[in-house]
Design a protein around this nucleic acid. Structure first.
Lengths: 186, 186
DNA sequence: ATATACATACTTACTCATAAGTAAGTACTA
DNA sequence: TAGTACTTACTTATGAGTAAGTATGTATAT
């Protein structure tokens, strides 16, 4: 019984995540979730009272998954960890999704406060993790770059984030060539 | 009389551009234009029959302005042209705006077809101009980088585009440090 | 063992707000 | 008198959200 509950809740979160990352927060409705899942709008509201509530749950779940992923990577080499990080974006490209910051950042000021907070927190996690990785890799001598680690992290995240967006507009696999070039720049 | 017409039409375009670049296409309404300009929704519809019509006009006007700007730059040195290009983004940051590709790209699939087309065209103009500039600067010896010019252009545009987005989420002037670092990388 | 109570996971049937868009009329100008 | 630039007064659609009811399984009391 309990498992069944979690199952439809998770299905809503899965679909909601896809919708945010392919269409954006303001361009999807409860109907876009309820109809494909064969249920009524009110059933979605049962699990998530409000849209912002759902939005925040999606952000938090993704952030939690990221945190557990990087934790699992912690014993790997810095190069391997960076390669894994880059792989997140090539996978996103194949799934025709942009990342959360790319999807929600442009309309940040229009988001409900709880989602703004969640997104800010998630962006902080990613930036500080990558900054630490680059800093450690630099002192270990496995990475080589002249920028400050924090600025290098922003440069990398930015290029990846926007590579996904540009890929959508241009129809070209922009992020893949960006990943290729970023690897040469560390 | 004709001048007066163009004036309110231009006011609508100005405000519409700001709304798209601060809130996104799906998060602004005709009311957000008519009320601040002290007119009725129907007056906006008089100038632009549909929202997508307005959206396209905004994109096209910005693209036309970009084209005329780069034309004016054409006699300047490659370094100066690149510096001018980068300045567009630091100005955007100060105005708390993201660029059009950043604002509209993530929800590209939800845009009306005419706007998709206009955005694609605009992105092509920017990418091909910057690619040409980098290519010429490279053979002139004023720029120095190892990537292919087209890929370098995507790397630069991506970093700038996402720097604006990240700045909004983090509250930090991400794009300014990105500009600083990009200058060292060409 | 069986009736009763209770919680979970929904559906039905709304409300209320807002959005895009339109038709018909008006004021002003050339 | 004809066109421009609007306003008034709608329509229609859609979206978030809610209140009340229903089905089903689970736990408890007798």
């Amino acid at each position: 019984m309990y498992i069944w509950v979690m199952d439809t809740r998770d299905k809503i979160l899965d679909l909601g995540e896809e919708l945010i990352r392919t269409r954006g927060y303001h361009a999807f409705s409860f109907k876009d979730i309820s109809v494909p899942l064969g249920m009524k709008n009110a059933a979605v509201h049962y699990h998530f009272p409000s849209k912002s509530n759902l939005g925040l749950a999606i952000i938090d779940r993704t952030n939690d998954r990221f945190l557990s992923e990087i934790h699992q990577w912690s014993s790997l080499s810095k190069e391997k960890q960076l390669a894994n990080f880059l792989k997140i974006y090539s996978r996103s490209y194949r799934q025709n999704k942009v990342c959360f910051m790319g999807a929600l950042g442009p309309a940040y000021d229009t988001l409900p406060a709880n989602m703004q907070e969640g997104l800010q927190k998630a962006s902080h996690e990613i930036r500080s993790w990558l900054t630490g990785l680059l800093k450690d890799g630099l002192s270990e001598g496995v990475f080589e770059f002249t920028e400050k680690p924090g600025e290098k992290a922003d440069l990398i995240i930015s290029a990846l984030l926007a590579g996904l967006i540009m890929g959508r507009v241009t129809g070209e696999p922009v992020v893949l060539s960006i990943i290729k070039n970023l690897k040469k720049q560390v």
